[in-house]
Design a protein around this nucleic acid. Structure first.
Lengths: 343, 343
DNA sequence: AATATTTACGCAATCGTTCCCGGTTATATT
DNA sequence: AATATAACCGGGAACGATTGCGTAAATATT
């Protein structure tokens, strides 16, 4: 068995006694080629399974028809749903996607950005890691006119398209729900304080308390730099919250892993939800209804986020002129009430 | 703002008054270039952020240093863990990965294979869809010497590297556990009957029954063509199982979605687990411990599957000679006993 | 019948990089 | 001093495809 060798336009030309230009034009159905020649070329190409070499095309056209994605983790329902949305649009428009994971590490994010950029992708969809503060790696590309669209975890400092969920509203509604359910001391288990989503959600949380005349205290917020990826981090945060004088009777968790690790902690310590403490969390897991107790959640339209971000990115890639006006799309979250927050 | 234009070797050559050959050699640290010239070239390249164009390299070297992955779904813990394993090895060895999803559809699998193959990838990692019977789309590539490695859902008809879990043992052990726990009528909720994993698991299930002198009946097996992706499918299968004269008191489910949709069904019909019926399932979710009741599972070493498959694939890609002897790696599953199977 | 136009195709440059051939100096060998 | 040998660098083809330009033959126009 010989090594895999793809058939080229040259092979067709040689076999048919034509020039490569004629074959190329015949394949593209050019008016300059006679119907008989076209037929001959097409039939022969079909027979030997000719497929144009996209690498050669990319080199010529200076575009690869592929886009890069950077997320913290694909083994995370929220992001894998987003990726499904991205993929659905990308493949429709003839783009393929290359996925890279930061695993919430700034260093890996930088490496991935440079790697993807050097792989000559046409654009980048980014949700930054929870460690990211310095943006040089992205600003660099952006300043050279490289198309970037941020989603979910965005950075305000850069002027690009952005697709997010109304995090303020999500947290506000969740907190109001807790207040109206009669909980009196509501704590917040938050992700990295560097992240836009963390800031927005905490603002919603505070505003809800304020609007209902409830006291706010800084100590009722605990941050987890790695967004709940590490159980120990969550354990420590909850230890801190629960040892306080006015122990919280409800918790709002700001991310998927935060929420589930919270439950794991409660289970370990035999803390009953919602009897001992109520829990509501941002989550896109599709079995929060099966958890014990079933979980009240703020659900985000992940698939749509991916779709919209990709549409914006591809529009920018294919636009003749530089974009003047960047869009900021804000999607509504959905509040789903279940057992974990009902007295 | 102008369009993004990458700097090339030609730019460096022009700026420094050298030829492209010299610049290329200087960058590759060739002995033919003087230390001074090297220094000059290297410093200038650094200054203007020169990055070699991988597209041009791919065209020359006839390889793209990227591999394709085909799975049914990335929003599935088992597969996203596998992808993590794949990625870890691939990036280490300088390959990037392009992921395509079949969503359990044969047609989409064929389209994806053709798409990936035309994107000039160097090799393919495949776990077939549950609908796949005809293998022409893969055999085609394989016969032309294109490197393919199957993982998890393999096809026996093709001579390639294969990485799987010992599905027989997983199902056998799980069934034995149910038998020893005192369950008398054990039903199997299986995935697509076309899949290798389904066949192997059912063989393990039957052997366990046989070894313990328990009767086997064909009606105790229900197949779900889409592997539990659709709730209705699972609902129908369970309806069938539960309306039988000798109603099962335990179920072994053959896949993640099968298991969770089973739980959803039980919850909906207020069937108590494990009191009314016991449940054990193949699953790689990392919150089966938090479910109600906590779930007994057969867990597969997903990350390792991805790692090994990728190592085998890249070894084959980079091997000078065609592979003579294809490997078949079989990894051990892990049986985790929890509440859902304890009387 | 001479010229104009259309039809149908080939040549060669191009994309960015590598690498096989050269060739020109400077240094080493006799 | 004449020749051999490094040391160093440039020219140009190649990878696969597209495309502007040139041109031969066939057909149309007058």
């Amino acid at each position: 068995m010989m090594k895999y060798e793809a058939v080229t336009i040259k092979d067709i030309a040689k076999a048919l006694g034509l020039s490569t230009s004629t074959v190329s034009r015949a394949l593209r159905d050019s008016y300059e080629i006679s119907p008989e020649t076209k037929k001959m070329v097409l039939e022969y190409s079909e027979k030997i399974h000719y497929r144009p070499n996209p690498i050669a095309l990319s080199l010529k056209e200076k575009r690869s028809r592929s886009i890069g994605i950077i997320v913290c983790e694909i083994a995370n329902s929220f992001f894998s749903q987003i990726i499904n949305g991205i993929e659905s649009i990308a493949y429709d428009k003839g783009y393929n996607v290359i996925i890279a994971q930061s695993h919430e590490s700034y260093d890996r994010e930088v490496i991935n950005v440079q790697y993807l950029a050097s792989r000559s992708i046409d654009g980048l969809l980014v949700s930054v890691s929870s460690e990211t503060q310095d943006l040089e790696h992205l600003r660099n590309l952006h300043e050279r006119g490289f198309p970037i669209v941020f989603f979910d975890r965005i950075v305000e400092e850069m002027d690009t398209h952005k697709v997010i969920v109304d995090n303020f509203k999500g947290a506000y509604d969740a907190t109001v729900h807790l207040i109206k359910s009669g909980y009196l001391c509501i704590a917040a288990l938050a992700g990295s304080e560097y992240l836009s989503i963390t800031k927005e959600r905490l603002l919603g949380y505070r505003k809800a308390l304020e609007d209902h005349g409830m006291p706010f205290q800084e100590s009722a917020i605990q941050y987890c730099l790695h967004g709940g990826m590490l159980y120990n981090e969550v354990e420590h945060a909850l230890d801190e919250l629960l040892k306080q004088p006015n122990k919280p009777d409800a918790i709002i968790a700001s991310a998927d892993k935060l929420t589930t690790n919270c439950l794991r902690y409660f289970k370990k310590l035999s803390i009953k939800v919602p009897d001992d403490i109520a829990l509501i969390g941002f989550s896109n897991l599709d079995l929060t209804d099966l958890l014990s107790p079933s979980l009240s959640v703020v659900r985000q339209p992940a698939f749509e986020i991916g779709e919209i971000a990709t549409e914006l990115l591809i529009a920018q890639i294919e636009s003749k002129r530089p974009i003047q006006e960047f869009e900021r799309r804000i999607l509504p979250p959905e509040l789903i009430i279940r057992e974990s927050t009902s007295k």
